[in-house]
Simulated assay, not measured.
Amino acid sequence: MPRIIIADDDELVVGIVRAALEARGHIVGELTDGKPVKDVVELKRPDVVILDCSMAEVSGIMALKEIRGSSSAFATPVLMLTGRRSHADEEIAFVAGASDYLRKPFDPDELVARVEALIDKSGETRPAAAPGYRAHRAGDGGLGTYGANGANGANGQASRHAR
């Protein structure tokens, strides 16, 4: 099953993205800030990362630059999902290394198609997630999340939240 990490501080957007991707069998983990993105991507090795441009502390563009500067995460496909509408913002994202760019509001079916195209383009799925990562799977009522340091809880385990 392909693994997707979304970093967006808007719970509504995360819920829409999660529901659309899980309906197609993808596993989805979430971050609410761009600060831990690079570390989580290096550790968990997702098949695709979805970033919002505008987040607290570290923007999606800065998180993207950190991913592209990482020797172990640089090839991870990154879809920018953002409310920024100008062509200049889109160009900035592509120059920073975005694999694709989708503006909000968005059609969930188009998002799924673009994510799956990125997965297909990147080749075979990466090895299984590192121990300790528990992501939400469709129907099990939980959601894999990471806190500011990349994990919730004192034991470093990803937390599970009931719907």
Rank of each mutant, 00 (worst) to 15 (best):
L81Y: 06
K121D: 12
I50D: 04
E30V: 13
G132K: 06
S122R: 14
L143H: 13
S70F: 01
L12N: 13
D10Q: 09
K35I: 11
I4C: 01
K121I: 00
K35F: 14
H87P: 14
Y146L: 12
E66W: 10
G69A: 07
R85S: 09
K44P: 03
A128E: 05
A130V: 15
G83N: 02
S122I: 05
A20M: 05
A138M: 06
R18P: 01
A129M: 15
I6H: 03
R160H: 11
V37W: 04
A113L: 10
I119D: 04
M55T: 08
L31C: 03
C53H: 03
K38G: 13
D52N: 03
A138P: 04
P46F: 04
A23H: 08
R137H: 14
P2T: 02
P105F: 08
V14Q: 07
R45D: 09
E22G: 04
A98Q: 03
S59L: 10
S54Y: 07
A117M: 08
V95I: 13
F94R: 12
V40G: 07
E110L: 13
D39I: 12
R3W: 02
T82N: 09
A96V: 00
R126K: 15
T76I: 03
M55H: 08
S70P: 08
D89G: 06
H26W: 05
S122Q: 11
S71T: 00
P105K: 06
R126V: 10
K44D: 14
R84M: 15
T82K: 05
M1G: 07
M62D: 15
I4V: 14
I67M: 06
R126H: 12
V95L: 09
D140V: 12
Y146I: 13
A162G: 14
G141E: 07
D8V: 03
G97A: 01
D109I: 14
G25Q: 08
E57C: 13
R85Q: 12
E22F: 05
P108G: 09
G69Q: 10
D9M: 04
G153A: 06
G25L: 06
T145M: 14
V40H: 15
E42D: 10
V112S: 14
A135G: 09
G15P: 06
G69K: 00
V78C: 07
L79Q: 04
K121E: 15
K121A: 13
R24Y: 09
T145D: 07
D8W: 00
L118N: 03
A113Y: 04
L12M: 14
P46V: 07
S159L: 05
D39K: 15
V41R: 01
K35C: 11
V95S: 02
G142Y: 08
H87T: 15
E124T: 12
E90W: 02
H87Y: 10
G123L: 11
G147S: 10
P105T: 01
L43Y: 13
G150R: 10
Y146M: 15
I27S: 11
R45S: 12
R45M: 09
V41W: 08
Y101Q: 00
L51N: 00
G34I: 02
F94C: 02
F94G: 01
